[in-house]
Design a protein around this nucleic acid. Structure first.
Lengths: 146, 146
DNA sequence: TACTTACGGATAATTATTCTCTAAAAAGAT
DNA sequence: ATCTTTTTAGAGAATAATTATCCGTAAGTA
């Protein structure tokens, strides 16, 4: 959350450019995303946005998230039970997910571009979006399980 | 599918060793897994096993898959909509998934062990299961989209 | 201000996965 | 072997995230 105001403006501008309407609900959701530090789930964002708009429906959250995802502005992290979203680092990067408490943190791991090129050649696939997830135990749960 | 009979025996032996019961339903499911070439989903396995056991429930499939997964004998590939299973290469390896036709193939990419160790150190996480997925276009869909 | 059209909201549908309960199988004792 | 006890698995119902549909309304524009 280097500068959530700047990120907010960035997202709003991106929406305007593509002629999507800036409804109050949508603006509020974008504000929450820009301000988010972790990797909130759709349900968590929904719960927060309902503070301002108690009648809002989940579908509205999903629709706007899908929009931002398609624009490449938020990164979806699909888990088994639900999806979480990274609204401040839309570039692909690895995630570490605790299998005990479900805590998600960003991983600092460089992609080995040459290897990916080789993989594209050997497989014939055109790779668009890498999704690298490391399941394991977070420091807290590791300690508690010992 | 080098030798599905050998793989079948291997899985059955592993189940026996841990004193899991070999019910007809379970044996048939294991046979399907040992024989599977691609990365079948739970639903696909369920559909096939119902040819032999029309009254069988999905829960039975999920339970046995969970069992084999916990034993490290099958690898789960969780996608957004459902999970697929790799019953013949239980060691972690990357997958390439086509965003158009959902075809899944195994990727031949070495894990960079030193990088993973560094990631464990910097994050404090104890990594148990890496899941590396590359979304993109398979050769067929790439051709058709041009 | 009026027009056009996308959006929000509600409800219901869909669908993967899991819970609960019952039946059946294994183990042990006589 | 048979009866009893205990554990496990199977079937069907339930759960919960996400999506589809439809209509009224409000955003953007001239």
């Amino acid at each position: 959350m280097a500068d959530s105001k700047a990120r907010f403006d960035e997202l709003i501008t991106a929406l305007k450019e593509r002629d999507f309407r800036l409804t109050p609900q949508r603006v509020e959701l974008v504000r929450l995303i820009a301000r988010s530090e972790g990797h909130p789930s759709a349900a968590q964002l929904y719960a927060k946005v309902r503070n301002q708009f108690p009648t809002m429906s989940p579908a509205t959250v999903y629709k706007t998230l899908a929009l931002l995802k398609d624009m490449g502005q938020v990164l979806e992290i699909d888990l088994r039970d639900d999806s979480h979203y990274d609204g401040n680092r839309p570039d692909p990067h690895p995630h570490l997910i605790c299998t005990q408490c479900n805590k998600i943190v960003d991983g600092k791991l460089e992609f080995d571009l040459p290897s990916i090129r080789k993989l594209e050649e050997s497989s014939g696939y055109q790779i668009v979006r890498p999704q690298i997830t490391f399941y394991g135990l977070c420091p807290d749960c590791k300690r508690n399980s010992q």
